[in-house]
Design a protein around this nucleic acid. Sequence first.
DNA 1: TTTGCGATGATTGTTGACAATCTGTCGTAT
DNA 2: ATACGACAGATTGTCAACAATCATCGCAAA
Lengths: 229, 229
Amino acid sequence: MDMEAGTRPATDQEIYQRLWSAIAERQIGPGTRLKEEQLSEIFSASRARIRQVLQNLARDGLITLVPNRGAFVSQPSTEEARDVFFARRTIEERLVEKLCATIDAGGIDRLRNHVEAERRAHSNRDIAAAIRLSGAFHLLIAELAQSQILADLLRDLVSRTSLIMAMYRQKDVLNCGPDEHNAIVDCIVARDAKKALAVMHHHLAHIENQLDLEADRVAARNLEDILGA
Amino acid sequence: MDMEAGTRPATDQEIYQRLWSAIAERQIGPGTRLKEEQLSEIFSASRARIRQVLQNLARDGLITLVPNRGAFVSQPSTEEARDVFFARRTIEERLVEKLCATIDAGGIDRLRNHVEAERRAHSNRDIAAAIRLSGAFHLLIAELAQSQILADLLRDLVSRTSLIMAMYRQKDVLNCGPDEHNAIVDCIVARDAKKALAVMHHHLAHIENQLDLEADRVAARNLEDILGA
DNA sequence: TTTGCGATGATTGTTGACAATCTGTCGTAT
DNA sequence: ATACGACAGATTGTCAACAATCATCGCAAA
């Protein structure tokens, strides 16, 4: 977190965005405790407002509110992780399907430009930007598909996916490159809904399979939670 | 609202549930203003807690928070209404599909019993119960399908559907009876995922088609919003 | 040495009061 | 008679202090 105290009062929206980004982009690790007073100093805001923001973040699943204990960056269980991917497949398969029917030239441009930006970040080894853009690609699809409700939910799911990857990614696996995203765009441009759906399914399954979501790992983690901090 | 002041402090959860039910079950009409102090008296709670609850309800889309004006029961636009049904189809089709693969005897019992309860309420002309049970049926499916994320979202969508029906239902159309629900259960019991999906799609489309979501109606409503209270 | 217990400090939960903002009304000038 | 502007009431937004709760540490007893 590159936030400094003493800056002039930040609006609730800004505080929310700032924390959201910091968690979703893995600048704050899972399990980290967020103290209200600490945050109120950082953002020069009263505790009441911090509290509101925390409540919203909790509803997004990014942090977990423990009564009388405080707020912690969530540590999604493997069940929750699988559920997130199940929900993402459900939503995103439908969105690309719809997008194939409704995309226009402007939308195609935005998709192409975005994938190009991803490619640049990737070749520049700019990991932070790659993570951010990778998530933003999925959000762009949701935006173009014009379903506000599913787009809002997907925003949460994408950020939770970041958390999940921070916890369960196997060390030797890197982020998926922009190639699969490009393949999805190709399907959309070709207006091949069936294939677009299949490629999206494959893409999300691919990400999920890169994770280490085995049961024994769960036990180990839970034990660690019980014993450690 | 059959709430009384003077009762001992209600927990946030209770306040939320109480308001949620009241709106989702159409005891409070769209557009109704909810004053914080009024609510704090009703629930014997401080304004701060009421405020928190209102924020949560706003996030569910049940109420709309206007800065410096207060909270109003939402008046979904026709676009939002269609979006709600689009999201519901997306989610519920997938859930019944999954349920066909994972349902067990206990789950079947619960589904059967629920439909039976719906039938009783319907034949007794207990409209309020019928509305509540009709929504609860869909939530039961989500619960049995064991996707917490989609179940949570669906809960919001079902309540928003109630609001939408309160606004856009054509006068001569009644609530759909429990027959379609029963058909869905039959498909699930038969583990016919493809048919279950189709029947669910038909069911939701049926509800949507009963509504009056034409464009001219939109204009009239928007005009009313601009001119009136 | 280990275990149970009580004091202490830190952190969250709650409240009531105060400030800012908006709506509607009344008075005045044109 | 109408339009503009200031005033009053009501309502929301914000805050800082107080109360309740929890984790930690030290101490004594087995």
